[in-house]
Simulated scan of single mutants.
Amino acid sequence: MSVRVVVADDQELVRAGFSMILDAQPDIDVVAEAGNGAEALEAVREHRPDLLLLDIRMPVMDGIEAAGLVCAQSDCRVLMLTTFDGDDYVYDALRAGASGFLLKDVRRDDLVHAVRVVAAGESLLAPSITTKLIAEFTSRGAARPAAPPSDRLGGLTTREEETLGLLARGLSNAEIAQAMVVSEHTVKTHVSNVLTKLGLRDRVQAVIAAYESGLIVPGQ
């Protein structure tokens, strides 16, 4: 079954270029294009795609507002695009529910890979975006709250909390398994339990929850 995609960017050439690359893939179907956030939201409502490729800076309704509404109103996953790796809106876009973040100069193969990964339920961040996200937590003064993190993390078990902490530090399932001396299958179960108990969409949201709860402190 093909991954149904809506491409939203206010620059027609950029939008057409991304659409052409994705539509050329046998397992990806671009069902609509949009020139602003409002059009993107309407396209999602009409076509019910699996993924929205969404520019963060657009007229009428920006990408952050559109992402928040799409994530709140549908199961469509959102992959954000930006021109700058220092974009100040990275944190806000991820808080709105975006599952991935890419720079617009992404290579063709990396774009296709990102769409497949995010549509499959995973999350994806360019390394420079991850660095920016951590820096944003630091600049906003994120610090350990008065209440213990365990009181703010939805009743996670000790092992689930440990898994969340390692996940937030950027470790893969294989690396988490090695650190905890368990199988990758066990790690996948822990990650699934964390997302379910905290009501999170994916690993990106889990990373944010780990920092906001104080389980992980920037610079730690």
Rank of each mutant, 00 (worst) to 15 (best):
A126D: 09
T189R: 06
A8Q: 09
V112C: 06
S2I: 07
R48L: 13
Q25M: 07
H47P: 00
Y91H: 06
A146M: 13
G170V: 08
C76W: 00
H113P: 00
L125K: 05
E212N: 02
L166R: 06
L111D: 10
L166M: 12
P26D: 12
L200I: 15
V191H: 07
I129G: 05
G97I: 02
L102Y: 04
S19V: 07
L164Q: 05
C76I: 05
A179V: 02
A120G: 15
L54Q: 09
M180W: 07
E39G: 04
L53G: 01
N193W: 09
T157F: 03
M1P: 14
D105K: 02
A177S: 12
V90C: 10
A72D: 14
M1I: 08
G86N: 04
L167H: 09
L164G: 11
A174F: 09
A177Y: 11
A179P: 01
A119I: 07
N36L: 06
L167T: 06
L102Q: 09
T131I: 02
L79M: 07
S2P: 15
A210W: 10
L133P: 00
P59Y: 03
V60T: 08
Q11K: 06
L81R: 04
T189Q: 10
G214L: 15
L124M: 13
A93I: 07
V187N: 08
Q205D: 08
M20T: 14
T163E: 08
H185G: 11
L124Q: 11
A43L: 02
I28S: 01
V115I: 05
G86M: 05
L69C: 01
G219N: 12
Q220I: 03
V118Q: 02
M180R: 13
M1V: 11
A24I: 04
V204E: 10
K197V: 12
A210Q: 12
Q73T: 04
